[in-house]
Amino acid sequence: LSEQDFVSVFGITRGQFAALPGWKQLQMKKEKGLF
């Protein structure tokens, strides 16, 4: 994903996403169907 695509999918930047705890990252990926 490009940075723009990432933001459009998750609503946050890669940096903000990386700062989230692992379980939260997994939850967001599952919600978006990316896992």
Rank of each mutant, 00 (worst) to 15 (best):
M28A: 00
K32Y: 07
E31C: 04
L20Q: 05
E31K: 07
W23T: 08
G22L: 12
T13D: 07
F10T: 05
L20N: 08
Q4L: 13
V7K: 05
F17I: 02
I12E: 02
F17V: 05
R14C: 11
P21D: 02
T13A: 05
Q27S: 09
P21C: 04
T13E: 11
Q4I: 15
A19H: 10
F10C: 06
W23I: 07
K30L: 09
K24E: 10
F6S: 03
L34C: 15
L20T: 04
F10R: 03
V9S: 03
K24T: 04
V9G: 07
G11A: 03
S8M: 13
S8G: 12
E3T: 11
L26E: 15
E3D: 14
P21T: 03
V9K: 12
G22H: 14
S2L: 10
A18I: 11
F6Y: 08
E3Y: 02
R14L: 06
Q27A: 10
I12M: 14
G11F: 15
T13N: 07
L26S: 14
E3C: 04
D5S: 12
T13W: 01
L26M: 10
F10H: 00
D5W: 00
K29E: 15
S8K: 15
E3P: 07
V9E: 10
Q4P: 11
R14A: 10
G22S: 11
A18S: 08
I12N: 03
D5Y: 01
G15C: 10
Q27H: 14
V9R: 09
K24D: 10
L26Q: 14
F6I: 09
L34M: 13
L34F: 15
D5A: 00
P21S: 08
Q4E: 13
E3I: 09
K30V: 11
T13M: 05
I12A: 04
S2M: 02
A19F: 08
W23V: 11
L20I: 00
Q27F: 04
V7R: 10
E3A: 07
W23C: 08
P21A: 04
Q25T: 05
K32V: 11
E31V: 05
M28S: 00
S2I: 14
P21Y: 01
F17L: 03
I12P: 01
G22A: 13
K30Y: 13
W23K: 12
A18M: 07
K29W: 12
G22D: 11
I12C: 08
I12Q: 00
A19M: 09
K24S: 06
V9C: 02
L26P: 00
F10Y: 13
D5H: 15
G33C: 15
V9F: 04
Q4T: 08
K29T: 12
Q4F: 12
K24V: 07
F6A: 00
K29D: 05
W23R: 08
A18W: 05
S8V: 10
K32I: 02
G22M: 11
L34W: 13
Q25R: 09
F6L: 04
G33D: 15
L1T: 14
F35S: 15
L34D: 15
G33V: 02
I12D: 04
L34R: 11
L1G: 12
M28K: 01
Q27N: 02
A18C: 11
E31W: 01
W23A: 10
K30S: 11
P21R: 02
E31D: 13
G11C: 03
F6G: 00
I12W: 00
T13S: 08
L34E: 15
W23P: 09
V7A: 10
K29M: 09
T13R: 03
L26T: 12
G33S: 11
A19G: 10
F6T: 09
F6D: 01
T13C: 07
A19C: 08
Q4A: 12
F35I: 15
G22I: 09
I12R: 01
K24M: 11
V7T: 10
K30W: 06
A18H: 05
R14I: 08
E3G: 05
I12F: 14
S2R: 07
S8D: 11
F35P: 14
K24I: 10
G15K: 15
A18V: 08
L26C: 02
K29L: 07
A18K: 15
S2E: 11
K32E: 09
E31M: 04
K24G: 03
L26A: 14
K30P: 04
L1V: 09
L34T: 15
W23Q: 08
R14M: 12
I12T: 02
D5E: 12
F6N: 00
F10A: 05
S8N: 06
A18R: 09
G15L: 08
G22W: 04
L26K: 14
Q16V: 04
L34G: 15
V7P: 06
K29I: 08
A18T: 10
